[in-house]
């Protein structure tokens, strides 16, 4: 118990710090949100969304939006730490490094989910489709967890390179392809009202991905920040 409490306290402090900073400036969330809405807008014209075609591609559009907005958020969240020297301060603090990883990942997860919370109703209204289904929400929860677990690790690396902002999507996208594929198919199947047997393999894949990549990222995070 004594071991767990300081870890949780450190984790909570990292998350709290991110949330408080964001609450004051609101620059990251607002950028992610506007970006997400713009992506949806562009899709509307690029694909000429019509009532018939829309049902099938809603899941795809949602996940492309989350993926892109997520990259924006991940980049920003780590770049701020790096530029203001906060990362070094965090690392100097006598806390478990993994608490920093989980704190950052949890913060990023909250930001991604906040974007989803706003994008979903907007999309529902714009296209007259009910997206608030428990199944879809579960998929978003699982999918964004896997995305954020790898994304936090990779963005910690990419901000320390010369090419920083350009590098993150290049590093991240080929690795999260399983998440995107599984999440798109699972969401699409939920929206189409298919049976659980059709959806189960995708959920399993998402869960496996989440477990594997959260575990591995947390194991190697030390190597990414040590100086």
């Amino acid at each position: 118990m004594n071991q767990v409490t300081p870890f949780l306290r450190a984790l909570g402090a990292v998350v709290w710090k991110d949330l408080a900073a964001e609450w004051r400036s609101r620059e990251m969330l607002s950028a992610m949100l506007v970006f997400a809405l713009l992506v949806i807008l562009i899709f509307n014209f690029a694909l000429e969304l019509d009532p018939v075609g829309r049902a099938n591609i809603t899941a795809g559009i949602l996940w492309v939006t989350f993926t892109f907005a997520g990259t924006l958020g991940l980049n920003r969240s780590m770049a701020v730490e790096k530029d203001r020297g906060c990362l070094d301060g965090l690392l100097l603090a006598p806390v478990d490094r993994t608490a920093i990883y989980f704190g950052k990942a949890l913060g990023n997860w909250i930001f991604m989910l906040s974007v989803a919370v706003i994008v979903l109703p907007v999309y529902s209204i714009l296209y007259n489709i009910n997206l608030f289904q428990p199944g879809l929400l579960l998929v978003i929860l699982l999918g964004s967890e896997g995305y954020v677990a790898v994304g936090t690790l990779l963005s910690t690396m990419s901000v320390q390179t010369r090419t920083r902002d350009i590098l993150l999507p290049i590093l991240l996208f080929p690795i999260v392809i399983p998440v995107v594929v599984a999440a798109v198919k699972a969401s699409g199947n939920y929206l189409a009202g298919l049976e659980m047997a059709e959806i189960q393999p995708w959920l399993n894949l998402l869960i496996v991905y989440d477990v594997v990549f959260t575990a591995v990222s947390f194991m190697v995070f030390d190597a990414v920040v040590e100086e």
């Binding site: 790898v150 690790l153 990779l154 690396m157 990419s158 320390q160 390179t161 010369r162 090419t163 920083r164 590098l167 290049i170 590093l171 080929p174 690795i175 392809i177 399983p178 894949l205 496996v208 991905y209 594997v212 990549f213 591995v216 990222s217 190697v220 190597a223 990414v224 040590e226």
Partner: peptide, 30 residues
């Protein structure tokens, strides 16, 4: 590309190692 972006050899090696591990693990899932 990741390796090209890092100048410090020690850091380059660490980043490369991490990415090689993550990348290989994602292959069966993909």
């Amino acid at each position: 590309m990741l390796r090209q972006g890092v100048e410090d050899p020690d850091r380059r090696a660490r980043f490369g190692a991490v990415y090689a591990i993550i990348g290989f693990l994602s292959v069966p899932l993909t």
